[in-house]
């Protein structure tokens, strides 16, 4: 599955949320992906300084850190503070004004938008910043090639809204043989504050509930690490977290969503967002293992900032 990582922003008023497109877990993506040449380069302007706080998704945390590093090369005395504990921490931070940017790896819930609108009188602005593809990982030694979405549901969910009548607990149930046949699955996942958790729940679990035995890890990286060290492990996480110790397996399911309207932003924030949507910013997107936006989307997003 693929998520369109969005990113929220407020202080003086805008928030950007995430939109989701889903396909399969890609492999060997790094060599193929390049930035759309139509995306303009970033132009420096004067008088950009001040504080920029970002609180939200930990999946996007690193991307923001990279961006912040790049942005600070342009504007050395901008102070950027980045905090990432999960997408669900973004809306409260925007609401209380503790952050100007709220990166999220899922769309805002209407409850969250309501609360924001109630306080500020206008809706948060959503800017899409990168595409991510969410992958189901297994250990590198696991011979499995493919899982259907219904099987994923029966592995991760206790409510099995996907429709399979029996839950899947051993690898034999997904047609592995030999020593794998009797081996119980060891399931890893994200903590509930994360947008990845919510996205997976909504799309792979058909809005069902996770099993109690899903080990909730406080970061996408620790999901991957757990699976690396656990032969029977299976878990989900962004494709950017892939390492040599795990294998991403293919799935399928599609889903799309729309963004919200924008309003005005303070200069630092606007410039930072413009930087993100520039060539340099989108190159960083690839570096962190996400997929860059097409030029058309960038153009649309830039229009929201005017």
């Amino acid at each position: 599955m693929m998520m369109h990582k969005g990113f929220l922003n407020n202080v003086t008023k805008a928030a950007l949320a995430g939109c989701l497109i889903a396909v399969t877990a890609t492999t060997a993506f790094a060599e193929a992906v390049t930035v759309d040449p139509k995306i303009p380069a970033y132009k420096k302007v004067s008088g950009v300084s001040g504080n920029l706080d970002s609180i939200g998704s930990d999946t996007l945390n690193n991307l923001l850190t990279y961006w912040a590093e790049g942005f600070r090369k342009e504007y050395p005395n901008v102070r950027i503070q980045i905090e990432g504990k999960g997408s669900s921490t973004a809306p409260p931070a925007l609401l209380s004004g503790t952050a100007q940017l709220g990166p999220m790896s899922r769309a805002m819930k209407s409850e969250e938008i309501d609360a924001f609108t109630k306080k500020y009188g206008y809706a948060p602005t959503r800017i899409d910043v990168a595409l991510d593809s969410l992958a189901v990982y297994v250990n590198k030694d696991n011979p499995i090639k493919e899982l259907s979405l219904q099987e994923v549901d029966a592995i991760f969910s206790k409510t099995r809204k996907g429709g399979l009548s029996e839950e899947i607990t051993t690898w034999g149930q997904v047609a592995l043989t030999g020593p794998w046949q009797q081996a119980p699955m060891s399931i890893y996942g994200r903590n509930s504050a994360s947008g990845t958790y919510g996205y997976f729940k909504e799309n792979a679990l058909f809005k069902g509930d996770f099993k109690d035995t899903v080990k909730e890890q406080p970061g996408s990286a620790s999901v991957v690490m757990g699976i690396t060290e656990d032969k029977n492990g299976i878990g989900y996480s962004g494709i950017g977290y892939k390492t040599s110790g795990v294998k991403a397996i293919a799935l399928s399911k599609k889903k799309g969503e729309k963004g919200q309207e924008a309003s005005f932003l303070p200069a630092v924030t606007t410039e930072f967002l413009k930087y993100i949507l520039s060539k340099a910013g989108q190159e960083i997107v690839i570096k962190d293992g996400f997929l860059p936006l097409p030029a058309k989307v960038v153009e649309k997003e830039l229009a929201k900032l005017k």
Partner: peptide, 16 residues
Amino acid sequence: SYDKPEYVWQSSSASD
């Protein structure tokens, strides 16, 4: 969607 009454902790989700 549960088959019987249970003790469950699952506090959040992305859907409304």
